[in-house]
Amino acid sequence: VNSLKGVSSRKVKQQKFKSVDSKLWGDSLWSPSYFAGSCGGASLEVVKKYINEQETPK
């Protein structure tokens, strides 16, 4: 996760997207933390259905 966040942050910053600049965590694209979880062997379709049925945060 750390490598993915570092590489993607550098790539996005190289593009200098104005729309991204206003959403940075200070000078960082990502927060310093991350979450890893499991879905207990559920199929991809079940996981997609679960995600799609979640409410949007307000």
Score class of each variant (00 low, 15 high):
6 G>D: 12
39 C>S: 11
53 E>P: 01
11 K>I: 13
35 F>N: 04
2 N>T: 13
37 G>L: 04
51 I>Y: 09
56 T>Q: 14
36 A>I: 13
30 W>L: 02
7 V>D: 15
20 V>T: 03
41 G>K: 00
30 W>H: 01
10 R>H: 08
58 K>L: 07
40 G>R: 09
48 K>A: 15
36 A>M: 12
24 L>A: 00
5 K>L: 03
36 A>S: 14
14 Q>A: 12
56 T>M: 15
54 Q>V: 13
30 W>D: 00
46 V>I: 14
21 D>Y: 08
24 L>W: 02
37 G>A: 12
41 G>L: 05
50 Y>F: 14
15 Q>P: 00
36 A>H: 03
18 K>F: 03
58 K>Q: 07
39 C>W: 09
55 E>P: 05
38 S>C: 13
33 S>H: 10
53 E>T: 11
18 K>L: 01
6 G>P: 03
52 N>K: 10
26 G>F: 02
47 V>S: 02
37 G>T: 12
46 V>C: 13
17 F>M: 12
32 P>G: 02
57 P>H: 09
56 T>K: 15
52 N>E: 15
13 K>S: 04
7 V>N: 11
6 G>S: 10
13 K>I: 03
4 L>Y: 07
43 S>T: 07
48 K>C: 13
32 P>Q: 06
54 Q>P: 04
23 K>E: 10
28 S>D: 15
3 S>Q: 11
42 A>V: 07
6 G>L: 07
19 S>R: 14
8 S>Q: 05
54 Q>D: 14
43 S>L: 04
50 Y>T: 08
55 E>T: 10
20 V>A: 04
13 K>Q: 04
49 K>S: 12
32 P>S: 05
20 V>R: 01
21 D>M: 11
47 V>C: 04
18 K>M: 04
55 E>I: 09
19 S>M: 09
45 E>G: 06
24 L>Y: 01
42 A>N: 09
41 G>H: 02
5 K>N: 02
18 K>R: 10
41 G>T: 02
36 A>Y: 00
22 S>I: 09
57 P>E: 15
16 K>D: 03
44 L>A: 12
26 G>W: 09
11 K>S: 08
47 V>D: 04
55 E>Y: 11
33 S>P: 08
6 G>V: 01
13 K>Y: 01
58 K>R: 14
17 F>P: 07
14 Q>W: 05
54 Q>T: 15
46 V>F: 15
53 E>C: 09
21 D>K: 06
33 S>G: 08
58 K>A: 03
50 Y>L: 12
38 S>F: 12
19 S>G: 12
35 F>W: 11
34 Y>F: 02
12 V>C: 03
13 K>T: 03
49 K>Y: 14
31 S>I: 08
58 K>F: 09
10 R>L: 08
50 Y>V: 12
42 A>D: 13
45 E>Q: 05
44 L>Q: 13
18 K>S: 02
46 V>G: 07
29 L>S: 06
47 V>T: 05
33 S>F: 15
18 K>N: 05
35 F>Q: 06
50 Y>C: 11
